[in-house]
Design a protein around this nucleic acid. Structure first.
Length: 529
RNA sequence: UGGGGUGUCGCCAAGUGGUAAGGCAACGGACUCUGACUCCGUCAUCCGUAGGUUCGAAUCCUACCACCCCAGCCA
């Protein structure tokens, strides 16, 4: 078995491509075959080396490798040209002088047959001569096309003498200025597959109508083999957009911060967000491959993500909205080192140390003066467990002149370190961080990019539905000291908050920037909605 | 109204003549120094609709309905 992943280098890869990558590379691997990487670079006007570089990196990051089997459709331009001449010699292709507008008129419509081009019966010699001159650059862009001679009355529009070569003076990222004529996709793809001895040419549903043309071209020519084209449904996920055009628009209009913005469904964006390659591969496995159009719920993706992250992320504490707490019965000059496991179920991850002191920070969300029913965090006069440390009781709330809470005065129960309190139960456990030793970090909170589950078909423009809260930057967050020295792309679970990763672009040793990959499931928040 | 596809739980998705897998979500409950994780349980008498064939159909036949794709010198 031999497959290929054939991206056009005209944009960054997204999660939809991941499905195709997993299918092509995964299936080949499963049947001890090989999968090639082939850049489908027949339209230099839209393509760029920047894209080929990013595509290569994304595929490797996802966990797949193509060894030395990196091909380009442009590698076959000479052969493609020779095959075109062969087609002409058989009377199966002709040079057409119709303008684009005329060609459209001659093509007919979905319900009416097309008309033959006046050039359809041009002699073979004349066609050969004209085609040679097209290649030689004797004609202006668009003056002529080479068309396959099939059937202008076919109910399948693709068979109505499709253009297979067009004149386009355009610098090509691989072939430079060698060519001024470029072959079209339908003609190129099947021959490229055949030359690479592809056995299964997997593509998406919209190419189904092209299959007769794929087969027709190969049937006319003497090629090494005749691959089978097999179509599958492309991946759609709700609350996002997947078309390259729209993703590019979001980037160009600066509605997001580049192709690798953590809110983008691009593999680069997801990587920066903190997605793991394994979670994406697993997700692709989970959704399956069928021929029916479907929209997968993001919760499936997030499930796969959390599943992987829970197992593999070391835990840490980070207070996003710091509220100072003074432990009145704890000496000012005292500190105790608290040792906490990095993972509750995986001892091999070791432990971390956090100094406990008189002044600490807790999250403002973990304290309520007037708690809702069922609240089991800190309240005035109530007790709560500080994770991995003591149980404290809140005695007093200090407010500023405007009535905002400034700090909490608490006392701890010295008998509760590593032991349950006597004679009472403390249900709540909250995270904390030592005030003096904590690290100042920036935390970027991300949410779905769109507020509408199907921005594509929502009323108005899809851009109208961009979620204004898709990015919330939190500064002055306080992280436990063990985070010092965290490297780009390091992942953590901030206990009771979610999974975070060190931004691979903006973080430095003295300025930690953490991205929210995905929050923990939160039945409390859901219950209170 | 031409051609090509697809319709199984809220969302994915098995099943292709023998009487509806699984996952996600949801909802109960257990456990818990993460309201997390984990664990247990509930969740399609019904497979787009209507007929028909058959001892027996989601699976075969007929008709109908809905949705998607195609009129780029894009891929």
């Amino acid at each position: 078995m031999q497959t290929r992943f054939p991206p056009e280098p005209n944009g960054y890869l997204h999660i939809g491509h991941a499905k195709s990558i997993c299918l092509n590379f995964g299936t080949a691997r499963e049947f001890s075959g090989l999968c090639n990487l082939r850049f489908d670079d027949t339209n230099p006007a839209k393509e760029d080396m920047e894209y080929v570089d990013s595509i290569r990196e994304s595929i490797r990051w996802l966990g797949f490798d193509w060894d030395d089997r990196e091909h380009y459709a442009s590698d076959y331009f000479d052969q493609l040209y020779a095959y075109a001449e062969a087609l002409i010699r058989q009377g199966k292709a002709y040079v057409c002088s119709l303008t684009q507008e005329q060609a459209r008129e001659y093509r007919g419509t979905l319900t009416e047959p097309g008309k033959d081009s006046p050039d359809r019966n041009r002699s073979i010699e004349e066609n050969l001569g004209l085609f040679t001159r097209m290649k030689a650059g004797e004609f202006a862009d668009g003056a002529y096309t080479l068309r396959a001679r099939i059937d202008m009355a076919s109910p399948n529009m693709n068979m109505r003498d499709p253009v297979i070569y067009r004149i386009r003076r355009q610098h090509h990222h691989q072939t430079g200025d060698k060519w001024c004529i470029y072959p079209m996709y339908d003609y190129t793809h099947c021959i490229s597959d055949a030359l690479e001895q592809i056995t299964h040419s997997l593509c998406t549903l919209e190419f189904e109508d092209h299959r007769p043309l794929y087969d027709w071209v190969l049937d006319q020519l003497e090629v090494p083999c005749h691959p089978q084209q097999i179509e599958f449904a492309r991946l759609n996920i709700n609350y996002t957009v997947m078309s390259k055009r729209k993703l590019k628009q979001l980037v160009d209009e600066k509605l997001v911060n580049g192709w690798d913005d953590p809110r983008m469904p691009t593999l680069d964006g997801m990587r920066r967000r903190g997605y793991t390659p394994a979670s994406i591969r697993n997700f692709c496995e989970m959704v399956g491959v069928t021929r029916s159009n479907s929209v997968v719920d993001v919760s499936m993706l997030e499930h796969s993500l959390r599943d992987d992250l829970d197992k593999n992320s070391p835990r840490a504490m980070c207070v996003l909205r710091p509220l100072k707490v003074v432990i009145e019965n704890y000496p000012e000059d005292k500190t105790e080192i608290m040792t906490l496991p990095r993972h509750p179920k995986d001892d091999s991850m070791g432990s971390r140390e956090i100094p406990f002191a008189r002044e600490i920070y807790i999250d403002r969300n973990d304290f309520e003066e007037v708690p809702p029913p069922g609240f089991k965090r800190l309240v005035t006069g109530g007790e709560v467990r500080l994770r991995g440390s003591y149980v404290i009781r809140c005695n007093e709330v200090i407010k500023d002149s405007s009535g905002a809470i400034n700090e909490l005065r608490c006392t701890l129960d010295a008998a509760t370190l590593g032991a349950n309190p006597e004679g009472r139960k403390v249900k709540g456990v909250i995270h904390w961080v030592p005030a003096a030793a904590a690290l100042d970090v920036e935390v970027r909170l991300y949410d779905r990019l769109f507020t509408h589950e199907d921005p594509d078909s929502a009323e108005g423009d899809y851009r109208d539905y961009i979620n204004p809260e898709s990015l919330v930057v939190m500064t002055g967050c306080k992280a436990e000291p063990s985070l010092a020295g965290a490297a780009p792309e390091d992942r953590f679970q901030f206990e009771r908050e979610g999974y975070f990763c060190v931004d691979r672009k903006d973080a430095s040793t003295d300025n930690l920037v953490l991205n929210l990959t995905v929050g923990l499931r939160d039945t409390w928040a859901k219950q209170n909605k």
